[in-house]
Design a protein around this nucleic acid. Sequence first.
DNA 1: CTGTTAGCGCTTTCAC
DNA 2: GTGAAAGCGCTAACAG
Lengths: 372, 372
Amino acid sequence: MGSPMAMSGAGGPARGVTRSDVARYAGVSTAVVSYVVNNGPRPVAATTAARVRDAIAVLGYQPNANARALKLGTAGLLGLLVPDTGNPFFAEYALAIEQAATQRGLALLIANSGSDLGVEATLLTDLANRQLDGLIVAGAGGPPVDSTLSGVTAVTPTVFVDTASPVPGYRTVGADKHAGALQAAQHLVEVHGHDNVALLMGRGARHATDERETGWRDALRALDVERGEVAYATFTRHGGYVAGQHLLALRPRPTAVFASSDLLGMGLLRAAHEAGLSIPDDLAIVSFDGTNQAEYCWPPLTTIRQPIQEMAAAAVAAIFDQAAPAHQLFPVSLLARRSCGCSLPDSDLKPDRAGSNPAPPTRHPRKSRKRP
Amino acid sequence: MGSPMAMSGAGGPARGVTRSDVARYAGVSTAVVSYVVNNGPRPVAATTAARVRDAIAVLGYQPNANARALKLGTAGLLGLLVPDTGNPFFAEYALAIEQAATQRGLALLIANSGSDLGVEATLLTDLANRQLDGLIVAGAGGPPVDSTLSGVTAVTPTVFVDTASPVPGYRTVGADKHAGALQAAQHLVEVHGHDNVALLMGRGARHATDERETGWRDALRALDVERGEVAYATFTRHGGYVAGQHLLALRPRPTAVFASSDLLGMGLLRAAHEAGLSIPDDLAIVSFDGTNQAEYCWPPLTTIRQPIQEMAAAAVAAIFDQAAPAHQLFPVSLLARRSCGCSLPDSDLKPDRAGSNPAPPTRHPRKSRKRP
DNA sequence: CTGTTAGCGCTTTCAC
DNA sequence: GTGAAAGCGCTAACAG
């Protein structure tokens, strides 16, 4: 049963009303309707304009965006390709990009590759065929500089994000992962006196060595730390959990771990809890990204914060601003919380996504650094 | 100094190559090019087709999606409006919808209202003006059945999601929140013997009473539980934290809390940890949604799982399948983990988003239920 | 099997 | 201040 109503809306007229219907109803030409709708480029007499607006309302006229896009050569659309918005980092990044896009009157087309290079290539082609005004790409473990790409990005202004190194011929936006990793390892060693700092490294679909790995290595070398195991994990909580278990089973067990993403840090956290380890006493953790969730783990995760809002804004801007630098590298900052051994007052909690600055940490040296 | 290269791609030719260029180059008509590109609707001789494909490759031709959309009356686009993809529930929901859309060859346009009704209305109009093939809307605290809507959804097939009750004139998809809340409260009372079960209720931008609140009330009434405070919170981790602190400061302190979302549960978890409470002994928690993150809290959150994948698929299907029921209500299920007092083997962890079934819980009655 | 052609709905230049 | 008209690039009759 049910009424013959289309069940898709409140049952108005609409569909199929074109600008010429409006023009006829208002007794004007289609050009005038255009001028009224777009508020330009020519002026319209107030009374005429009112008549047109009336007709629009009465007929329930909706301009056809596709026709407009065809004529103008732009649909006001931005594309975003990410590995996985199930990862809070990309979720927050995507949200920030959407906001930056909306501010410019653009809508956001989003696509997840699931960290699969084949899917990534397909989606990239699909997106490029849509006459987007711009394309922002976070590759699965690196920028997708393959054969597919050349034909694809020739047609759409493309920016790579989550890229710490420049890519010749493309604009890129990224955070300083090397410095962040350096800072993380350094903090664990110098502030908290660790001498066995492992790395829990996420592995994307591409092989390229991540700057977080080299940063961590450089820190250990510079600080003369000899023990530093590496475990590689898929970029999921579960991946961090499994690789974390592996790390915790080593003998001697690392006393500190730098996790290359919050997601991984959370998996490690769970593995540590299950192993009955106390954090940060038995195991100190610093992770990477600075997502909102990191603050709500227990203990709260010390993390290297990427300036997501700023990078998102820069990525969108880089599409349009002709003068934008080819490569923009953003500084990161250590958000000291409990998981590394810093003890902080409890009630410094701010609303989600405040992008706040860290409170000055109280230092808790763990033990003397050098082996006896 | 940069090269004069456009810096937007690998420097091919491209832009401005139309189908008639291809036709001229291949020595055929534009129709044939169309037939080759679209693989129909008329057959083309193999050799001709090859010549056309050649021309396409040589010229770097990319069909103009806007022109195609104008002609066909569809751009292959779905719109999704959600309150906040910073909320893992909506992030996972959006991801699932994108996958369902991609399977049908549609791309997904996503917009966040930030739980602001004004923004919501604006975005809704914007989306409706884009000649989308369909629109999926998760309103900020309820379906947006306002004045704006009538004119908007008349033109685009619209489905409301995250809606436990039907909305006259619209198709809706939702989870059985009432049953879920009932189940949660019942579990805390009957399995774990609590007699003071509070509710930590998220509040959207709309006033409407949430089915989770009535479900919880009904459970307490049916089970003859007298103590049951309610705290209202904004739908963020921080909101859960603040309202959670309030709940924990009550005397007598609730021994169990049902949180109306995982996000809120995580905020409460943090508040409880900071208060030095042991979970589940001093405070048992059951939350709602069943996001991946809930499993990685400590202790892992017992949660009422919404079948996100299934609902997402149903929402997309409802847009196209004429015969879809007006209202689809999906069952929820309790995922027993540690935060409620169920003790489970550790290593039952599956990869993220497995949508797995819970292991049979070991029951830990907490104390005799009735007051002396 | 292939070519010709009429629009899809809109913007905007050019005349009035 | 307003109208007429030329396409944007594509698809799909229809005619060969």
